[in-house]
């Protein structure tokens, strides 16, 4: 069921990551992603993998949730692994089966790339989405993008749109589930027929969903007006976000991942990709 998707969800908590200033957290996430991409040698990957596990532990997000979020990735992981195992050419032939030749380099590539994908998706969602409420996330983004207002970009409206979109994701998922069940009860068939037939079968879902999105939007606009919303002008915030010393230290930690990865690549270069 659609409801089972956990990617992009927020898990409330009190960890160091939860409390971190969202703007700095966004920067930290970018630094983390860069560090993962810079990893080339097995040692660097082992290092970043350990760091990712450490981050998960610190975040306090339950392991069950992490494992479940990996489930939709399995296909991609299997695909890239198989691709790398069979199609990477190298020097040391492990075995061959007909025209398929498997090299040692292929196996290493496969493992390292799988680790890279895993770290990238799990790590960044733990650092960012799992530990940051959507509103904090958009607040952080708003702060970071503030300089753009000088060139005429309406950053506040953009951030507001983002947070409302995030707010309605669970509502719309629930509604989609309900509409699918209701149309199934009227004998709608989503599972058989060719591509065109299947695409047509989506109309009974998409039209009601579209109609309900518009209804939500109109009602919400009135409700916001009634609560005196008039754009970013003269608006204050309940929680003003000022990074404290701990936030800067965590950011420094993430910044140090980059030189660490590079150094490991250079000084422990075994099994590099």
């Amino acid at each position: 069921m659609l409801k089972d998707i956990t990617m992009g969800q927020f898990f409330p908590g009190e960890s160091l990551l939860h409390k971190m200033n969202p703007s700095l957290k966004i920067i930290a996430t970018v630094l983390y992603i860069v560090a993962v991409f810079l990893c080339k040698s097995a040692a660097a990957f082992a290092f970043i993998f350990t760091i990712t596990v450490l981050i998960i532990i610190v975040s306090g997000v339950p392991a069950k949730v992490i494992l479940r979020s990996v489930r939709p990735l399995i296909f991609i992981l299997v695909f890239t692994t198989v691709y790398n195992v069979f199609f990477t050419k190298g020097d040391t032939l492990l075995f061959s089966l007909g025209f398929v030749r498997v090299y040692r380099e292929g196996v290493f590539n496969a493992v390292l790339i799988a680790v890279r994908i895993l770290c990238l998706l799990v790590g960044s969602s733990v650092v960012l989405t799992y530990t940051t409420s959507p509103i904090m996330l958009t607040d952080g983004l708003e702060t970071l993008l503030k300089p753009l207002t000088w060139i005429g970009v309406d950053v506040h409206t953009f951030a507001m749109m983002m947070s409302i979109a995030l707010r309605f994701i669970p509502t719309l998922i629930e509604e989609t589930d309900k509409i699918i069940s209701a149309q199934k009860a009227r004998g709608a068939d989503f599972e058989s027929g060719n591509l065109i037939r299947r695409a047509r079968a989506l109309i009974p879902i998409l039209v009601p969903l579209f109609a309900s999105s518009i209804r939500h939007a109109v009602d919400l606009a009135t409700a916001m007006e009634c609560r005196c919303y008039r754009g970013g002008r003269g608006r204050t915030k309940m929680t003003t976000l000022r990074p404290d010393a701990a936030d800067w230290i965590v950011l420094l930690f993430f910044a140090l991942l980059i030189p660490a990865a590079i150094l490991l690549n250079v000084y422990v270069p075994f099994f590099s990709i």
């Binding site: 009602d219 919400l220 008039r230 608006r235």
Partner: peptide, 28 residues
């Protein structure tokens, strides 16, 4: 309003309650 889903603006309870006073420019 009638439909509770169409009048909550944010995802966290207290942030939603703060929405109105924030619009009014009340001191944090």
């Amino acid at each position: 309003f009638q439909n509770p889903d169409n009048q909550l603006v944010t995802t966290i309870v207290e942030e939603d309650v703060a929405f109105g006073p924030e619009n009014l420019g009340v001191d944090p």
